[in-house]
């Protein structure tokens, strides 16, 4: 950009190129392994690939087939139930715990890590722990019987209609503490003078939170929603470890559906189509969020 190239020294020009050079490996990896792969999978979803990729275009047959499969419908409706409950309950628990912890609680330093530690565990460990804890034969139900509560029944994990809720329980256990931390950070970021002003204006505790604090937590709600929603769509390990998709197919989610159709049932085209739909779901959630994030930070 210098107006006279002969005066511009070599070093300055080099300095203009180094940053781009340094960034290029990451950009190249990203373009190939993320966006290239996405395009490839999208392409596959329009082919008749079975066990191995094939490149014959067959139109939208895979999508038509996919939406005609009862297993896919089960997975999608399971995801709808799971995501709704998971997001709502995590947000509710997270917000409640954050607000309660923000009341000058003695021992906050002890409680916070207890709420948070499950997020350090892998979903496989979480699944193993809960699978057993919820097993009627040896877990909670068994214990209650031993303690004399003979009529106690808690067999959801073996029940086709209820098993999906056990996944919700385990997932909430794992992530709600993290949501709590997000809300707590939001609460701590609120200007104390606003709260004082509201109290002078005569707001009761309840209306203080409802009218002032919770609206101010909007950014935390948004972040929590985005993080939880994308975790819900990606959920795979937890199902594998907790129920293995069962009983029967009662707890299949799109992520497990994709895996089994692609790699064990050799319906690669259909699997690819299901992955594309998962990606589109996440894109619909993420795009507005990313857009606003990038715009604001300019």
């Amino acid at each position: 950009m210098a107006s006279r190239a002969d005066d511009a020294d070599f070093r300055t020009k080099l300095q203009e190129w180094i940053p781009k050079l340094v960034l290029s490996p990451s950009v190249a990896l990203m373009l190939v392994f993320v966006y290239g792969f996405i395009l490839y999978t999208i392409y596959l979803s329009f082919t008749g690939s079975k066990m191995l990729p094939k490149y014959d275009l067959i139109g939208i047959d895979n999508y038509v087939r996919l939406w005609g499969l009862s297993a896919w419908w089960t997975a999608v409706s399971n995801l709808a139930v799971f995501a709704t409950l998971y997001i709502t309950i995590c947000t509710a628990i997270g917000l409640t715990l954050a607000i309660l912890l923000d009341q000058k609680i003695r021992g906050e330093g002890m409680l916070r890590p207890i709420y948070l530690y499950p997020m350090a565990l892998s979903f496989i460990v979480t699944g193993t722990a809960w699978k057993w804890f919820l097993d009627p034969g040896i877990g909670l139900e068994h214990t209650m019987h031993l303690w004399g509560w003979e009529s106690f029944e808690f067999g959801w994990i073996k029940d086709r209609n209820m098993a999906i809720y056990t996944i919700v329980i385990a997932a909430v256990w794992q992530t709600s503490g993290f949501v709590m931390a997000m809300f707590l950070a939001g609460l701590r970021g609120i200007d104390n003078e606003i709260l004082k002003a509201a109290q002078i204006d005569g707001a009761s505790n309840w209306s203080l939170y409802r009218r002032i604090v919770i609206p101010l937590l909007r950014p935390a709600f948004l972040s929590a929603f985005v993080i939880l929603a994308h975790l819900a769509v990606k959920s795979y390990d937890l199902v594998i470890a907790l129920t293995g998709g069962g009983p029967g197919r009662a707890t299949e989610l799109p992520a497990t559906f994709m895996y089994s159709y692609t790699f064990t049932r050799n319906q690669m085209g259909t699997g690819a189509a299901s992955a594309v739909i998962m990606l589109m779901t996440i894109a619909a959630i993420m795009m507005p969020y990313l857009y606003s994030e990038l715009k604001e930070k300019k």
Partner: peptide
């Protein structure tokens, strides 16, 4: 933006080509 979005993709979309 592209890098950020890549954090959130469902990995099922890259399994086959990977």
């Amino acid at each position: 933006g592209l890098l950020l979005f890549s954090c959130f993709i469902p990995f099922q979309i890259v399994l086959i080509p990977m």
